[in-house]
Write a protein that binds this DNA or RNA. Structure first.
Length: 320
DNA sequence: GAAACGTGGGG
DNA sequence: TCCCCAAGTTT
């Protein structure tokens, strides 16, 4: 029997009320800034890894002005190993824009949020919904997957968000603003905890009896997801360089990045059998990649390594 | 529209 | 061990 949207709303929101995680950025006392930071950190990054870093950021930078007052290199360093460190730079730039153009506050409309660096359609909608209670159509990878299975009957959503998916999401959003916020959070959580990409837990799904994919006999995906290239990419090399710089307690000579050299001051190996310091281990990993010099140059250029070099005490020791 | 962009835990 | 993939955005 075809479930009306109302029934899906009731069952999924009830499930969330009983089973949703108690995440700090969901607490009533969390500020819009806290929610904003969480949304950036959570882009392509699992919750468990974000949690401790988010806590540190909130302690150190409780509002946009606090972050904007420090060099962007500090944001990159405090980013730790969350990955995609450009996000740290964009977060710093967003805090600067909030301080300069929005009276030190997180803007509360989708259009204004969209003007901030690192904020796309999803993040703008999520912040407007979760931080400000606005009625926004939030569509992330979890929500897309739940919609694909429960409503469309496919194993996976399309390779890229398309107009049909967006229309479906819009049509499902409750009219009431408060209900729409609950719906957004609930469907996202269902996708994260139950309707997962691999081995979905249909046995505990609150809407398994309404699921089009289950009803169709769980047909397999009609395409093979493209794997993310890694070995041999600039990304791999940049990641290794970033690891060295994060561990560095003093400027790292450029030559040390290019190949084995005993110029690393803090890592000078004493004759004994001391375990290699993290800095030396990171350097060894970089060397093991054996990347062409021009690839190292690309990894060092621009946003990331330069910030660590110029704005913190430890980074690449630039020539001259 | 495709490709690039970091990192590490779980299956 | 190896591969998948996680609250996306930018170019």
């Amino acid at each position: 029997m075809e479930p009306g949207p109302r029934q899906l709303h009731t069952e999924i929101i009830s499930w969330f009320t009983a089973n949703g995680r108690d995440l700090p950025w969901r607490k009533a006392e969390c500020t819009p800034w806290g929610i904003f930071v969480s949304e950036i950190m959570l882009q392509q990054t699992p919750v468990v890894r974000v949690l401790p870093v988010w806590e540190q950021w909130m302690e150190r930078w409780p509002d946009p002005a606090a972050l904007a007052a420090e060099p962007s290199g500090e944001a990159v360093r405090a980013w730790g190993r969350l990955g995609y460190p450009r996000r740290a730079l964009r977060l710093h730039a967003a805090a600067t824009a909030m301080t300069a153009d929005f009276n030190g506050r997180v803007p509360d409309t989708h259009a204004e949020l969209l003007t901030l660096p690192g904020v796309g359609s999803y993040t703008a909608a999520a912040v407007a919904s979760f931080a400000f209670g606005r009625r926004e159509t939030v569509v992330d990878t979890n929500i897309r997957r739940v919609h694909a299975r429960a409503l469309t009957g496919s194993a996976l959503p399309a390779p890229a968000l398309n107009a049909a998916e967006m229309r479906l999401a819009v049509s499902l959003l409750p009219e009431d603003a408060a209900a729409s916020v609950a719906w957004n959070a609930s469907v996202m959580e269902l996708g994260a905890l139950v309707c997962t990409a691999r081995s979905p837990k249909c046995g505990t799904c609150p809407v398994v009896n309404h699921c089009a994919w289950v009803a169709a006999g769980k047909p397999p995906p009609d395409y093979v997801p493209r794997g993310q290239a890694w070995a041999g990419t600039d990304r791999q090399v940049r990641g290794a360089v970033m690891a060295v710089l994060r561990h560095a307690s003093a400027p790292v000579p450029r030559a040390a990045l290019l190949g084995p050299v005993d110029l690393l001051p803090a890592a000078a190996p004493e004759a004994g059998s001391e375990p290699a310091p993290p800095e030396a281990a990171a350097l060894a990993q970089l060397h093991a990649i054996n990347a062409p010099v021009e690839q190292l140059e690309r990894a060092l250029a621009g946003l990331l390594a330069d910030r660590l070099a110029e704005e913190t005490g430890s980074g690449v020791q630039l020539p001259g």
